[in-house]
Simulated scan of single mutants.
Amino acid sequence: MAKVPWLPAELALVQRSLVTLAERATPSPLPGLPVWGGELEEWHGWNRLLADADPLRDVDSWTSRNAVRLAEAEAGFPAATAGDTLLHSDLRSDNILLNGGQVTFVDWAWAARGQAWLDPMIFALCAAVQGHPDPEAVFAAHPSARAAEPAEVDSALAALAGRFVVAARQPVEWETAPVRAFQKAEAATAIAWLRVRTGWR
Protein backbone atom coordinates (compact mmCIF):
# COMPACT_ATOMS: atom_id res chain seq x y z
CA MET A 1 0.00 0.00 0.00
CA ALA A 2 1.17 3.52 -0.75
CA LYS A 3 2.45 5.74 2.03
CA VAL A 4 0.45 8.84 2.89
CA PRO A 5 1.00 11.69 2.51
CA TRP A 6 2.00 10.53 -0.95
CA LEU A 7 5.67 10.25 -1.83
CA PRO A 8 6.40 11.94 -5.19
CA ALA A 9 7.88 8.79 -6.76
CA GLU A 10 4.93 6.62 -5.73
CA LEU A 11 2.44 9.24 -6.85
CA ALA A 12 4.09 9.45 -10.29
CA LEU A 13 4.09 5.65 -10.58
CA VAL A 14 0.35 5.47 -9.89
CA GLN A 15 -0.34 8.34 -12.27
CA ARG A 16 1.43 6.47 -15.09
CA SER A 17 -0.53 3.33 -14.25
CA LEU A 18 -3.80 5.27 -14.41
CA VAL A 19 -2.96 6.33 -17.96
CA THR A 20 -2.38 2.70 -18.93
CA LEU A 21 -5.55 1.62 -17.14
CA ALA A 22 -7.69 4.14 -19.03
CA GLU A 23 -6.20 3.07 -22.35
CA ARG A 24 -6.99 -0.59 -21.67
CA ALA A 25 -10.40 0.14 -20.16
CA THR A 26 -11.78 2.23 -23.05
CA PRO A 27 -14.15 1.02 -24.33
CA SER A 28 -15.13 -0.98 -21.28
CA PRO A 29 -14.19 -4.66 -21.75
CA LEU A 30 -16.92 -5.74 -19.33
CA PRO A 31 -20.55 -5.76 -20.51
CA GLY A 32 -23.45 -4.87 -18.29
CA LEU A 33 -21.69 -2.54 -15.85
CA PRO A 34 -23.84 0.11 -14.15
CA VAL A 35 -23.33 3.73 -15.09
CA TRP A 36 -21.07 5.60 -12.71
CA GLY A 37 -23.02 7.16 -9.87
CA GLY A 38 -25.65 4.48 -9.39
CA GLU A 39 -28.87 5.80 -7.88
CA LEU A 40 -29.03 9.39 -9.07
CA GLU A 41 -31.04 10.71 -6.12
CA GLU A 42 -27.96 10.14 -3.98
CA TRP A 43 -26.10 12.69 -6.09
CA HIS A 44 -28.52 15.59 -5.70
CA GLY A 45 -27.40 16.59 -2.22
CA TRP A 46 -27.28 20.35 -2.75
CA ASN A 47 -30.68 20.38 -4.43
CA ARG A 48 -32.21 18.35 -1.60
CA LEU A 49 -30.63 20.58 1.05
CA LEU A 50 -31.93 23.73 -0.65
CA ALA A 51 -35.39 22.22 -1.12
CA ASP A 52 -35.46 21.51 2.62
CA ALA A 53 -34.30 25.06 3.43
CA ASP A 54 -31.36 23.55 5.28
CA PRO A 55 -29.35 26.21 7.17
CA LEU A 56 -26.02 24.66 6.05
CA ARG A 57 -24.41 25.35 9.40
CA ASP A 58 -21.80 22.63 8.89
CA VAL A 59 -20.21 24.19 5.78
CA ASP A 60 -18.07 27.28 5.34
CA SER A 61 -19.37 30.67 4.24
CA TRP A 62 -18.19 30.26 0.64
CA THR A 63 -20.19 27.05 0.32
CA SER A 64 -23.39 28.44 1.82
CA ARG A 65 -23.05 31.55 -0.34
CA ASN A 66 -22.66 29.44 -3.50
CA ALA A 67 -25.09 26.63 -2.63
CA VAL A 68 -27.44 27.55 -5.49
CA ARG A 69 -24.55 27.45 -7.97
CA LEU A 70 -23.43 24.09 -6.57
CA ALA A 71 -26.97 22.76 -6.96
CA GLU A 72 -27.08 23.99 -10.56
CA ALA A 73 -23.72 22.36 -11.27
CA GLU A 74 -24.67 18.99 -9.79
CA ALA A 75 -27.91 18.94 -11.80
CA GLY A 76 -25.84 18.28 -14.92
CA PHE A 77 -24.14 15.29 -13.31
CA PRO A 78 -25.68 12.40 -15.33
CA ALA A 79 -24.82 13.82 -18.73
CA ALA A 80 -21.44 15.12 -17.56
CA THR A 81 -20.19 11.73 -16.40
CA ALA A 82 -21.69 9.42 -19.05
CA GLY A 83 -19.09 7.42 -20.96
CA ASP A 84 -17.81 3.96 -21.79
CA THR A 85 -14.62 3.57 -19.75
CA LEU A 86 -14.35 0.85 -17.11
CA LEU A 87 -13.90 2.70 -13.81
CA HIS A 88 -12.62 1.56 -10.44
CA SER A 89 -14.44 4.43 -8.69
CA ASP A 90 -12.71 4.16 -5.29
CA LEU A 91 -9.03 4.98 -5.74
CA ARG A 92 -7.94 5.59 -2.17
CA SER A 93 -4.41 4.62 -1.16
CA ASP A 94 -5.65 1.46 0.58
CA ASN A 95 -7.02 0.20 -2.73
CA ILE A 96 -3.67 0.65 -4.49
CA LEU A 97 -0.93 -1.91 -3.95
CA LEU A 98 2.67 -1.07 -4.84
CA ASN A 99 5.30 -3.74 -5.30
CA GLY A 100 8.54 -2.45 -6.70
CA GLY A 101 7.57 -0.84 -9.99
CA GLN A 102 4.22 -2.62 -10.19
CA VAL A 103 0.85 -1.10 -9.35
CA THR A 104 -2.25 -3.19 -8.63
CA PHE A 105 -5.69 -1.65 -8.18
CA VAL A 106 -7.72 -3.82 -5.81
CA ASP A 107 -11.29 -3.91 -4.46
CA TRP A 108 -13.37 -3.28 -7.56
CA ALA A 109 -16.66 -3.36 -5.65
CA TRP A 110 -17.76 -0.09 -7.27
CA ALA A 111 -16.76 -0.92 -10.85
CA ALA A 112 -18.84 1.10 -13.31
CA ARG A 113 -18.64 2.80 -16.68
CA GLY A 114 -18.34 6.50 -17.35
CA GLN A 115 -16.01 9.24 -18.51
CA ALA A 116 -12.32 8.33 -18.58
CA TRP A 117 -11.42 11.36 -16.42
CA LEU A 118 -13.50 10.15 -13.45
CA ASP A 119 -10.93 7.77 -11.96
CA PRO A 120 -8.13 10.36 -12.23
CA MET A 121 -10.45 12.91 -10.57
CA ILE A 122 -11.29 10.53 -7.73
CA PHE A 123 -7.62 9.66 -7.28
CA ALA A 124 -6.69 13.36 -7.16
CA LEU A 125 -9.42 14.03 -4.61
CA CYS A 126 -8.39 11.12 -2.39
CA ALA A 127 -4.72 12.08 -2.66
CA ALA A 128 -5.62 15.57 -1.48
CA VAL A 129 -7.64 14.20 1.45
CA GLN A 130 -4.57 12.12 2.33
CA GLY A 131 -2.15 15.03 2.29
CA HIS A 132 -1.31 16.11 -1.26
CA PRO A 133 -1.52 19.91 -1.46
CA ASP A 134 -2.73 20.28 -5.08
CA PRO A 135 -5.47 18.00 -6.47
CA GLU A 136 -5.65 20.01 -9.69
CA ALA A 137 -2.02 19.25 -10.49
CA VAL A 138 -2.55 15.53 -9.80
CA PHE A 139 -5.67 15.52 -11.98
CA ALA A 140 -4.14 17.53 -14.83
CA ALA A 141 -1.31 15.01 -15.17
CA HIS A 142 -3.76 12.60 -16.85
CA PRO A 143 -4.47 13.02 -20.60
CA SER A 144 -8.20 12.48 -20.16
CA ALA A 145 -8.30 15.24 -17.55
CA ARG A 146 -6.65 17.71 -19.91
CA ALA A 147 -9.21 16.81 -22.58
CA ALA A 148 -12.23 17.03 -20.24
CA GLU A 149 -14.78 19.83 -20.39
CA PRO A 150 -14.15 21.91 -17.24
CA ALA A 151 -17.88 22.37 -16.58
CA GLU A 152 -18.41 18.61 -16.65
CA VAL A 153 -15.64 18.04 -14.14
CA ASP A 154 -17.11 20.78 -11.94
CA SER A 155 -20.51 19.08 -12.16
CA ALA A 156 -19.08 15.77 -10.95
CA LEU A 157 -17.13 17.46 -8.16
CA ALA A 158 -20.19 19.38 -7.03
CA ALA A 159 -22.24 16.18 -6.97
CA LEU A 160 -19.54 14.41 -4.97
CA ALA A 161 -19.28 17.29 -2.50
CA GLY A 162 -23.03 17.38 -1.96
CA ARG A 163 -23.20 13.65 -1.48
CA PHE A 164 -20.36 13.73 1.07
CA VAL A 165 -21.92 16.62 3.01
CA VAL A 166 -25.16 14.67 3.35
CA ALA A 167 -23.42 11.36 4.10
CA ALA A 168 -21.19 12.87 6.80
CA ARG A 169 -24.31 13.96 8.68
CA GLN A 170 -25.56 10.42 9.13
CA PRO A 171 -25.54 8.94 12.64
CA VAL A 172 -22.10 8.15 14.01
CA GLU A 173 -21.55 4.81 15.73
CA TRP A 174 -18.21 3.44 16.81
CA GLU A 175 -17.88 1.40 13.62
CA THR A 176 -18.91 4.28 11.32
CA ALA A 177 -16.90 7.08 12.97
CA PRO A 178 -13.86 6.70 10.65
CA VAL A 179 -16.16 6.61 7.60
CA ARG A 180 -17.99 9.77 8.66
CA ALA A 181 -14.69 11.53 9.33
CA PHE A 182 -13.38 10.58 5.90
CA GLN A 183 -16.63 11.70 4.23
CA LYS A 184 -16.38 15.04 6.01
CA ALA A 185 -12.80 15.43 4.81
CA GLU A 186 -13.80 14.46 1.26
CA ALA A 187 -16.58 17.06 1.28
CA ALA A 188 -14.25 19.82 2.51
CA THR A 189 -11.56 18.87 -0.01
CA ALA A 190 -13.96 18.72 -2.96
CA ILE A 191 -15.39 22.10 -1.99
CA ALA A 192 -11.93 23.65 -1.65
CA TRP A 193 -10.98 22.27 -5.06
CA LEU A 194 -14.19 23.63 -6.61
CA ARG A 195 -13.48 27.04 -5.12
CA VAL A 196 -10.17 27.12 -6.96
CA ARG A 197 -11.54 25.66 -10.20
CA THR A 198 -14.61 27.90 -10.47
CA GLY A 199 -13.21 31.17 -9.15
CA TRP A 200 -16.59 31.88 -7.55
CA ARG A 201 -16.61 34.52 -4.80
Rank of each mutant, 00 (worst) to 15 (best):
V103F: 07
A128P: 13
S17P: 06
H142V: 04
H88N: 13
G76N: 14
S144G: 06
L125V: 11
V59L: 09
A151H: 06
A168V: 00
L49N: 08
L98E: 10
R146P: 00
L86D: 08
A187L: 05
T81D: 05
I191W: 07
Q183E: 15
K3Y: 11
L91R: 02
A53C: 14
H132L: 07
V103I: 14
F139I: 01
G199I: 01
D84N: 15
L97R: 11
M1W: 06
A161P: 01
P143H: 09
G83C: 10
P150A: 07
A181E: 15
R163D: 00
R24Q: 15
A79R: 08
F123T: 11
L91G: 04
L160N: 00
G32A: 02
K3R: 15
Q102N: 06
W117P: 00
L18D: 08
N95D: 10
P143T: 07
R113T: 11
A53P: 04
A167K: 12
W62R: 13
L97S: 08
A112H: 01
L33A: 14
R163C: 12
H44N: 03
C126T: 09
A2W: 12
R169P: 08
P27G: 09
V165T: 14
T104W: 04
A9D: 11
W110A: 05
G83R: 05
T20K: 15
A161W: 01
T176I: 05
G32M: 14
T20L: 09
S93E: 10
F139E: 02
A53G: 13
L87V: 06
W193C: 03
T85D: 15
P27N: 03
N47S: 13
R146K: 04
A51C: 10
T198I: 03
M121K: 02
T63N: 05
A71S: 14
E149W: 00
P55A: 02
K3H: 13
H88S: 15
H44E: 10
L56T: 05
A111N: 07
R163A: 03
R65V: 07
G131P: 01
L125R: 10
W43N: 06
